[in-house]
Amino acid sequence: MPQDVDFHIPLPARQSPDHLRADAEQLAWPRSLGLIKSEAAAERHLRGGYADLASRFYPHATGADLDLGVDLMSWFFLFDDLFDGPRGEDPEETRQLTEAVAAALDGPLPDTAPPIAHGFADIWRRSSEGMTPGWCARSARHWRGYFDGYVDEAESRFRNTPYNSAAQYLAVRRRTIGVQPTVDLAERAGRFEVPHRVFDSTVVSALLQIAADVNLLLNDIASLEKEEARGEQNNMVMILRREHGWSKDRSVAHIQSEVRVRLEQYLLLESCLPRVGDIYGLDEAERAALERYRDDAVRTVIRGSYDWHRSSGRYDAEYALAAGAQGYLEELGSTAR
């Protein structure tokens, strides 16, 4: 994240005590699936700092539970990079790939499925272990929304109709930022589940929406230069400029203000959680799970994203140039067809 764009995040920074071990071992999983096949691709992947991100999203996790989080973060960004080239401008090709991946939610994949799909199938299998049918159904719903969002973004690029309002953009980007599946995994990593009857409550839904909004706004600031260079038009800074005729600096300042206001709302909503427990008649164990959801899932996805964006090399010029970005995308593309 550009150092001159300041965000104050009034939540504590945390990191798993097992992060150094997880960082040292993070390439084993993507390599075993053929998702990383060269040393140049490995070096570029390491520069993104995805094990660091997982250790901040899941600071309560260690061992195999943290490894699952690391593998999910690796998968997210390997998958996302597949759409930086021509595929991301072709709705039909995007749909074919996302459907091939999403098929893992319904059962075993054929051997002919692309490696990126087999990687997701492994993530889904490990994520679902020990979780209730209610959690699995909820998480699958979130994953389907995530995949559908990629098709919507490809449609926008294909038709050369960039989003011209912040509201329109947020509706799609809240899905493709991947916060919902990320937060779902915090329950699996921590071996708990938020009570299902409160998940769709107004307060919990609002907390999650704020978490998604803050993540995507931080990401849009961090990736602005990269997206400007490749001609991407769907970034909140660009959209605010189109919608209001603002300068780049004013648009960035507005995003800073939006993040501040959302976090003020977030803290207010957090203070309502005990009342939510009263309204829904939660017992002591259920209240404890709701508190863990606040502390180990929603808070960490906000603060963890901020800390990672400030340290990750994913948005540096060196990352885009390392080993030739186009060659790297071609390598990834060959694993996904």
Rank of each mutant, 00 (worst) to 15 (best):
A51G: 05
D52W: 02
D52Y: 02
L53Y: 01
A54V: 03
Y58I: 08
A61M: 08
A61E: 01
T62R: 13
A64C: 04
D65N: 09
V70H: 08
L72C: 10
M73Q: 12
W75E: 05
W75V: 01
F77Y: 12
F77N: 08
D80A: 12
D80I: 13
L82N: 09
P86W: 14
E89C: 03
E92L: 14
E93P: 00
E93H: 04
L97D: 03
A100K: 14
P108W: 11
L109R: 09
P110Q: 12
D111A: 14
T112D: 11
A117M: 13
A121K: 06
A121I: 10
I123H: 05
I123S: 07
W124F: 00
R125D: 07
R125M: 09
S128W: 07
G130I: 13
P133V: 00
G134H: 09
G134R: 15
W135D: 07
A137E: 06
S139T: 14
H142P: 11
Y146C: 10
Y146F: 08
F147K: 11
Y150I: 04
F158V: 05
N160W: 02
Y163M: 12
Y163G: 02
A166G: 08
A167H: 05
L170P: 00
R174C: 09
T176R: 04
I177W: 01
I177M: 06
V179S: 15
P181M: 10
D184A: 09
D184P: 11
L185A: 04
E187D: 13
A189G: 11
